[in-house]
Design a protein around this nucleic acid. Sequence first.
DNA 1: CATTAACCTGAGGCCGGGATTCCGCTTGAC
DNA 2: GTCAAGCGGAATCCCGGCCTCAGGTTAATG
Lengths: 173, 173
Amino acid sequence: MRADARRNRELIVTTALDLFAEHGARVSMEEIARAAGLGVGTLYRHFPDRQALLEEIAVDTLQRLMTFSRAAAAEETPRWQVLRLVVEHCAGLPLGLAKTLSSTPISHPELPRLERDLNALFEQLAKGAQEEGTLREDIPPSEVIALLNVAICRPGARADDYLTTVILDGLRR
Amino acid sequence: MRADARRNRELIVTTALDLFAEHGARVSMEEIARAAGLGVGTLYRHFPDRQALLEEIAVDTLQRLMTFSRAAAAEETPRWQVLRLVVEHCAGLPLGLAKTLSSTPISHPELPRLERDLNALFEQLAKGAQEEGTLREDIPPSEVIALLNVAICRPGARADDYLTTVILDGLRR
DNA sequence: CATTAACCTGAGGCCGGGATTCCGCTTGAC
DNA sequence: GTCAAGCGGAATCCCGGCCTCAGGTTAATG
């Protein structure tokens, strides 16, 4: 693969990631191309279709999140600390967007497993935090995840914006 | 106007309101018609186009909210109480959706004034709550409004769901 | 630097879905 | 009973987004 091609591929992925995070998964291929300063044709040279691009980004993002979360969870720090770290890591990511908003059913073989594992890990974390007394206990762990999903995984979210802060404080015991 | 026509008009508005609140403003005319048990043609008998329907609902909703909020603000109760009431009144309303999501620029003559007044009222409320010490003070009043706008005015929000609860608690001093 | 395979561009074809129209059939009102 | 007001929903129009492809560019190599 030529050097410029490799560079462009990377550029496409990061640009698309940004746009998805900022505006949701309905961003058109044209917009991505324009933002990346490329022609649409180039996108199609690297990804057979929109779905493939979406999927690559989704899987990639979830895998990074998984890695990050596993590492954070392995530490000895209080579960609350870990939760906060993960939340901050999540804010602004296009989490779930690719899957939820592109109407196409999941097709990448890794996605289901990844999701299952992430969910399990987060629920574990939430439960742990409740046990150590730092996370309010009137919300079931699974609901904490769902809530964070709505709150943090929104277009334009940032780790330090007011809403994220308020939600974290609201979750504190 | 014939009695059945009047009834249908009302039915269209309430059905559309529900659907917008539940799924956002991108609900199609067909969906609204189906949900109301009417033909699309009937929608167009009552509203010249989609935009008109959206606008009627937007203005109507904002006016009710204005009325409600004015009344609540006039009470002697603590500002926090008032804020909570208003928030609960808002949860699930299609607030802002009509304006934000339909790409058409505002055209109804009442909308700009309504928005300005509502904003002013809410900012007033937030400021009052901060002064009485019930609302955290590290968030500017205008940001409180913006934050609530993101948090409460989302499709499917309900006054007693976990996210609303958490946000209210997170805003508490 | 000449050669060439790999790349890139972006206008245009195609299509799906959603808005809007329209005409024959119904129904409330008098 | 009459008929204007209403209604239904298939047909049509239209927009906007996905994807293709012919023609020009460029990195890599000897």
